[in-house]
């Protein structure tokens, strides 16, 4: 009788060397892309002040809020879900925080009001997705409209000024020595996100749920709880992002964050997170966000107007995702 054999594999336990071979170059596409774009701008826009310290810090500051939300979105997309409501949740949170501060004069109540928005929206989103089995795309699309409308309604479309200096300083307005506060927020968010996704049980279970929900469930992962949690965290982080807008712009307004969901999703996908779930990179998402900021900055310095920027940004995203996709 013929002995059928498995395909010829060099046997043996995994070694350090083979570990390197197991790496997929596509997951580095974002860093290569970032470096290439950075070099191009450094060469061609040197005279426009691209490389100046102020300009580079500016890029960080402008992308910080997107970066923070992108960290949470990395978890959502890794778990094979999506959250389209983050932009309007940020707006609603900014408005509620501002209203609470002007009513009570207390920054603490402002923060609690903002966080409450995130919690409530997150619980609603999470429950509809996990317990009613509704697609997160539809749930959060509806929530996008509801949160936006609500923020507009309770402020009668007017901005609500925030006169609390401490609040404004903590949330985005202040600096810590030479370092902008927003940069710190980004660093903290990315650090926590990286550790949780890569080093904790929760992170592994998020990836397993997104990679194959049935297999994860069969292996004892509470996939409903995972899904619920990522939706909740996404909303809460969006609410924090809303307060960062409020602090930086010293006001709450329903328009803060409008359209951010698209930039955030683009940043996450650019960063190598699979739109189908199961693979995610927090650092990649940060660089995705920075790349978008870099492109915006460079295009402004080069003299393109907003409409041209939008078109070019769209094209770059298509190219990047095409390069990073699986065969």
């Amino acid at each position: 009788m013929t002995q059928t054999l498995a395909p010829p594999p060099p046997a043996g336990a995994p070694s350090r060397v083979s570990r390197l071979r197991g790496i997929d170059w596509r997951s580095y596409a974002i860093y290569i892309g970032f470096a290439v774009v950075f070099l191009l701008f450094a060469i061609f826009l040197a005279d426009d002040g691209f490389l100046s310290g102020t300009n580079l810090l500016n890029i960080f500051r402008q992308t910080a809020i997107i970066s923070v939300m992108a960290v949470a979105m990395t978890f959502v997309i890794s778990a094979a879900q999506i959250d389209l409501s983050i932009g309007s949740v940020a707006g609603l949170s900014s408005v509620c925080a501002a209203l609470a501060i002007s009513a009570t004069g207390s920054a603490l109540f402002g923060v609690l009001a903002g966080l409450a928005v995130g919690l409530v929206v997150g619980i609603v989103n999470g429950s509809l997705v996990t317990f009613l089995g509704m697609p997160s795309f539809l749930v959060t699309l509806a929530m996008l409209g509801i949160a936006f409308g609500l923020a507009q309604l309770i402020t009668k479309s007017a901005p609500v000024p925030i006169l609390h200096d401490t609040f404004n300083a903590i949330f985005g307005g202040g600096n810590l020595g030479p370092i902008p506060g927003l940069l710190l927020w980004t660093v903290v968010a990315v650090a926590i996100g990286w550790v949780v996704l890569n080093k904790t049980r929760f992170g592994r279970q998020v990836l397993a749920t997104g990679g194959n929900r049935v297999a994860a469930e069969y292996t004892g992962v509470n996939t409903r709880r995972i899904t619920f949690t990522v939706m909740l965290v996404s909303s809460v982080v969006a609410a924090i992002a809303g307060m960062l807008y409020a602090g930086r712009l010293e006001s709450g307004r329903y328009q803060w964050g409008t359209g951010d969901e698209l930039s955030v999703i683009a940043a996450v996908i650019l960063g190598g997170t699979s739109l189908f779930g199961g693979a995610g990179s927090v650092i990649g998402a940060l660089f995705g966000s920075l790349l978008i900021g870099l492109i915006n900055n460079g295009l402004i310095l080069a003299g393109f107007d907003n409409s041209q920027q939008q078109i070019i940004r769209g094209l770059i995203i298509i190219v990047a995702v095409a390069l990073a996709r699986k065969r």
Binding site: P14, R201, R204, Q205, A208, G211, V214, A215, A216, Y218
Partner: peptide
């Protein structure tokens, strides 16, 4: 369909129930 997360590494699959 039910046993493995195919795109994940052998190691991740082995450790999933042990986490």
């Amino acid at each position: 369909l039910q046993g493995l997360v195919l795109d994940h590494s052998v190691r991740e699959n082995l450790l999933l129930p042990l986490l």
